[in-house]
């Protein structure tokens, strides 16, 4: 049964599963080309000085891209379920509803997290070959809150998609947008680190939000 649920989720999201890694790869390549161009123009030492003194983020395009990935994946996965109330078909399957929803959510989270891990590796491993560990570490600390935004955005978008009424969807969109700004604030590398456990805790809590929407959907709230 779980295999069948995963199969359905794959059919819905297969285009996005190709588009997102392609987009991330293209942005990563562009970021490196830009980085090497700056090093070439300024010289490695001067460039390093700037990075250290001004706390420059080397991958600024990855500030909002993970959030976008989370929103896109959740939209592709859950909008078809809400269209014509197809979720009724999904919830009518001979499997516990909670298990169905957990499987669908874990599918999405797994894709997002896999994409992020590969991206982190693809960004930081080449960086480690050129720059000292301190700089690589600083860039990692800069990226990590932005990357945690992806599962948060995925779960919040799922919550809003499944929510049956616009009366709750609109405050949901406002609250979610506000919550996601905490993941993309600009700060010195590492300044965010004490805050990261709270961001992770938020993601764990956000995992429960879609269940609230499903419960409201099942009550037929309009």
């Amino acid at each position: 049964m779980y295999k069948a649920i995963l199969y359905k989720e794959f059919i819905k999201t297969r285009a996005v599963i190709i588009i997102l890694p392609t987009l991330f790869a293209a942005v990563a390549v562009f970021s490196f080309l830009q980085l090497f161009e700056e090093i070439r123009l300024a010289g490695k030492v001067s460039f390093l000085e700037t990075v250290i003194q001004k706390d420059t983020a080397m991958f600024p395009y990855f500030k909002h891209l993970p959030t976008f990935a989370g929103v896109l994946l959740a939209s592709v996965q859950y909008l078809p379920e809400i269209q014509y109330k197809r979720l009724k078909l999904t919830l009518h399957l001979p499997i516990k509803e909670s298990k169905t929803i957990i499987t669908m959510l874990l599918y999405g989270i797994t894709i997002v997290v896999t994409l992020l891990l590969i991206t982190i590796a693809a960004l930081l491993i080449p960086l480690a070959k050129t720059f000292p560990a301190e700089i690589v570490n600083a860039q990692f600390m800069t990226l990590i809150p932005h990357f945690i935004a992806a599962p948060a955005a995925y779960l919040l978008t799922t919550w809003i998609c499944i929510e049956p009424t616009w009366k709750f969807k609109i405050p949901g969109i406002i609250a979610a947008t506000y919550a996601l700004t905490f993941f993309t604030m600009t700060a010195k590398p590492g300044a965010y680190m004490p805050f990261v456990p709270y961001l992770i805790a938020f993601v764990v809590i956000a995992f429960c939000f879609p269940f609230l929407s499903v419960a409201r959907f099942k009550e037929g709230i309009q």
């Binding site: 295999k3 059919i11 078809p80 197809r86």
Partner: peptide, 16 residues
């Protein structure tokens, strides 16, 4: 689930 084709939807429901 109209994003499936004829074969896919059968394969999907058969799993349940």
């Amino acid at each position: 689930h109209s994003y499936f084709n004829v074969e896919q939807i059968e394969k999907y429901y058969a799993g349940f």
